[in-house]
């Protein structure tokens, strides 16, 4: 029998400050910072000189501090020539975030209405140390890392994006999963007032957007919980304030604007699998050999491209991360488990 002795630093659910008190504290601190301390922290000190042309965001002071202490370039592409960074304007101006509309430029145009501060995340399910945590509480114990990952969309386009965040494994470990925790299920915010896409009567998505990972995928060191990109906090349209990044899977697995992380016993049904099970599976590993029913996945268009330079390149197995993750799927038929 495993006898678990609580460390002094361990938190019980009863230790979690109720949100109302937490928020009033935040308001108080904000007021103090505004009196003068703001100069020291939230001045125009750039977190990283590489991103001098990236517009400065509007991050709270604690997040700016966190970002400035980032371990820069913790993971970089093997071939920086081929996988050069996608310009910030493209990465933040052209993406899918159906909560804000189905067009590629809808998120950038409409996500301004999302209120990311305050934000809290519920961690529940098969855990001993669950509860509702503020964003700051989730970030505080971890060291931020910059991870430059390829992002391969299931629609056959790709980008290279420098994320800032911490391994999901650290957050899960802190929640103390029970032996029944086989999968992790994630949920995006539902708030039709802030998210115009959720107001559409002809939406095929049954909100909230749900994604899931197998426990070993979630604990894999490449799996990132991101709060920033390009040396700043996440723009709203990219899934602020907290999103998942799983670089060896198609982009839709990397759920945005997370409000709930549940450790569960059964495999969750993710939103796209629910809409079109013949097109989107649970695993969604990048795989050039298994086509989407409507297009080939053998190649991808690296964006930005131009009319007569489509920038087409071969798609790599597990998006080029096979050395790190292939062993997770040993013995699994990837053709049926797409």
């Amino acid at each position: 029998m495993l006898i678990k002795i609580a460390k002094p630093s361990d938190l019980r659910e009863s230790d979690v400050t109720p949100e109302s008190i937490y928020l009033s504290r935040r308001r108080f601190m904000g007021g103090v910072a505004g009196l003068g301390a703001g100069l020291a922290i939230s001045g125009s000190v750039r977190a990283n000189a590489d991103y001098s042309d990236v517009p400065e965001g509007n991050a709270p002071a604690w997040l700016k501090e966190k970002i400035s202490a980032t371990e820069w370039k913790a993971v970089t592409p093997r071939d920086p020539e081929k996988d050069s960074l996608t310009p910030f304007d493209d990465a933040s101006g052209y993406n899918n975030f159906y909560e804000f509309g189905s067009g590629k430029t809808d998120p950038a145009r409409r996500a301004g209405s999302l209120k990311t501060e305050p934000w809290s995340v519920v961690v529940d399910g098969e855990v001993n140390n669950g509860g509702r945590f503020s964003l700051e509480d989730i970030a505080r114990p971890s060291q931020f890392e910059e991870r430059i990952y390829r992002l391969r969309c299931v629609e056959a386009w790709s980008m290279v994006i420098p994320w800032l965040g911490m391994p999901l494994a650290e957050v899960i470990k802190r929640a103390e999963p029970t032996s029944k925790a086989n999968y992790v299920r994630f949920e995006t915010l539902v708030d039709p007032e802030q998210m115009p896409g959720q107001r559409s009567s002809f939406s095929l998505i049954d909100w909230p957007y749900v994604e899931g990972l197998r426990m070993d995928e979630a604990m894999h060191p490449l799996t990132l919980l991101a709060m920033g990109m390009y040396g700043r906090e996440l723009p709203n349209q990219n899934g602020a304030p907290l999103r998942l990044v799983v670089p060896w899977k198609y982009g839709f697995k990397s759920i945005k604007s997370i409000v709930r992380i549940s450790l569960v016993e059964e495999q969750p049904v993710n939103s796209w699998q629910l809409i079109a099970p013949n097109e989107y599976g649970f695993y969604a590993n990048v795989n050039p050999q298994v086509d989407h029913p409507r297009w080939s996945q053998a190649t991808e268009r690296r964006l930005p491209n131009s009319l007569f330079r489509p920038n087409t390149m071969d798609t790599l197995m597990f998006n080029g991360y096979a050395d790190d993750v292939a062993e997770l799927y040993a013995g699994l038929d990837l053709r049926t488990n797409y």
Binding site: F202, S203, L204
Partner: peptide, 11 residues
Amino acid sequence: WVVRADLSEWV
């Protein structure tokens, strides 16, 4: 068949 998430425009 091209529509993925929202049928409004198609409708």
